[in-house]
Design a protein around this nucleic acid. Sequence first.
DNA 1: GCGCACTTTGCAAACGCTTGCAAACTGATC
DNA 2: GATCAGTTTGCAAGCGTTTGCAAAGTGCGC
Lengths: 346, 346
Amino acid sequence: MASRNRKRNVTIIDVAREANVSYSTVSRVVNNNPHVREDKRERVREAMAKLGYVANPLARGLAGGQAQVIGLLVRDLVTEYVAQILLGIDEELATHQYDLMLYTTHHRRAKESQYIQTLTQGFIDGLLLILPLDPGAYLETLRRHQFPYVVIDHQGFDDFSPTVVSTNTRGAYEATEYLIKLGHRRIAFIAGSENTSSAIERLEGYRAALQAHDLPFDPALVQSGEFDQPGGFHAAQKLLSLPERPTAIFAANDASAIGAMDAIRSHGLSIPGDVSIIGFDDIRQSAYCYPPLTTVRQPLIDMGRIATRLLMTYIANPAHPRERVVMNTELVIRESCAPPRSAGQA
Amino acid sequence: MASRNRKRNVTIIDVAREANVSYSTVSRVVNNNPHVREDKRERVREAMAKLGYVANPLARGLAGGQAQVIGLLVRDLVTEYVAQILLGIDEELATHQYDLMLYTTHHRRAKESQYIQTLTQGFIDGLLLILPLDPGAYLETLRRHQFPYVVIDHQGFDDFSPTVVSTNTRGAYEATEYLIKLGHRRIAFIAGSENTSSAIERLEGYRAALQAHDLPFDPALVQSGEFDQPGGFHAAQKLLSLPERPTAIFAANDASAIGAMDAIRSHGLSIPGDVSIIGFDDIRQSAYCYPPLTTVRQPLIDMGRIATRLLMTYIANPAHPRERVVMNTELVIRESCAPPRSAGQA
DNA sequence: GCGCACTTTGCAAACGCTTGCAAACTGATC
DNA sequence: GATCAGTTTGCAAGCGTTTGCAAAGTGCGC
């Protein structure tokens, strides 16, 4: 409504007057355009410093230049998983001269595509997407606009997008194999949200490891944990009520593993004495819960950082070929796993 | 450099043509200006829907309107403390039609005031500041520009700013008193970063409780923990090497308490058997570390939420009187505290 | 059927920048 | 010292809005 009574800002024109050049020259200096003679460039720089000139990103964006802002589209900020990636993004961004615009969709699909429209109007120069909900529709739009974007941990829905992912299948395979080598035979799996590729890949890894070691796959041992703590709790409840209880549980992420640990304890069982548990992600809590959680480390911070770096490349050079970066996972052994009680087998 | 070859967007002018009115009428409809006849308003709405019009925030901002964006200025995103506040901000924002611009200063002072300049150019409509570093300079600027802002957990440096804080002194008093009532006599304090008011107030609360219970204040029992985990670890190391070891430690925040717990264990001591420990904040890890940490809960999410709501009020009505909201802390008793070993006293 | 006080509408200027285009400059070459 | 190919510079148009101001429209009482 009421327009703010802002004090008049120092503009490119003021600088031009001070430096005794035209305003386009000032603009060129600001944008590092090479077609400016060195002495004038210097004069403009001095004038800018003297007047305390700060570019107006709105005007730049509107006029078709770079707003020096990138966007991050994410479902929500609740999870430590997202928080860690955000950390990496932020760190990387600090080394470039870019700011960050945060878009949380709060799980409402309509919002995502609405944002995309706003965004491509020049508000931001590039977009990072973490685990987008229903990207079919608008990724196509982004591509058509030649708008720079990078997807983090996506769902394999298309192969044209630059992406940063981690070795979900292999990580899950290694986790499962670790439990098998400890002597476990009944290993349960707490799965993630069904429609994400990381959930699917981790389930695949789990099954592959069972198969490789000639263990049967029992669907009753797979329960969905929705990637969150309450989900993990409930899934574990069900698993522990099974007639033949599992001796180990592999949870598709740490949050659900931590929930499962609560459930195990509430059944009066000990970790890892009665039930071993292993997670995925290596969020901060995992090192500080009791007992410290063995897990598959996913380099979340680095994923954020690399994705950002990739995006910067695309912004600078829109023709840069699409890449798919795969980050290695790593088994982090702490104290939540042990051989099964009755086990002499190995 | 290269201007993006964006497809021409649907503008206010396209809508005007479609609805057969002037573009200012469309603008008025978009801004809910009452001076539009009902039938035209309806026609414009239809045209907007038909064409899929989305307002360009850059142009709005530039022209002096509202960009529908608020900014958040924060040192970094590393801490769970900030993450929780951010959560509250984000949740509240979702109910308004506002987006969030994130500014992390990464502890560089120069950056803060530079941002402030950009911001007041119309890029954002209001600003939230969490624990600003050196606000003396630019808070004054904001005030002069009549720019809406709210400070979260500030340092008491000025009394003109709208602020959301919590009862630090009282919370610290209660934590200390709780330890005293358990029978502890040598209670150490791991302090926060010296120049923040929350650190100062918590130290005050600690001292006040000692005094109220006729216990001496021993400067050797106060060590700075810098509000982070390594800091807490080192501070605890020093405290535990004291000739007469404390039987309880009160840490100025949970992060340093968790660091201290590591130190206690690395000294071969048990918690709470040998040393009791209590934190401040109630971040998520605290419930999942071992043993679960007794702490003073600070309603961080609510603080973010309330601050955002306050900011919305100021944006809508710049003349709204400056408020200072104080949130209550609450002692959360878990399992990290017990009476001292040798204690019959209470 | 006219004048009056409102309400509604449209035009034009501004917001601060980028950039294509043409003019002005530069220095080397003959 | 004129010519030419670069290089540097400045002008003007445009990006999509908001909003003050003036013009046009409305309804009412006489």
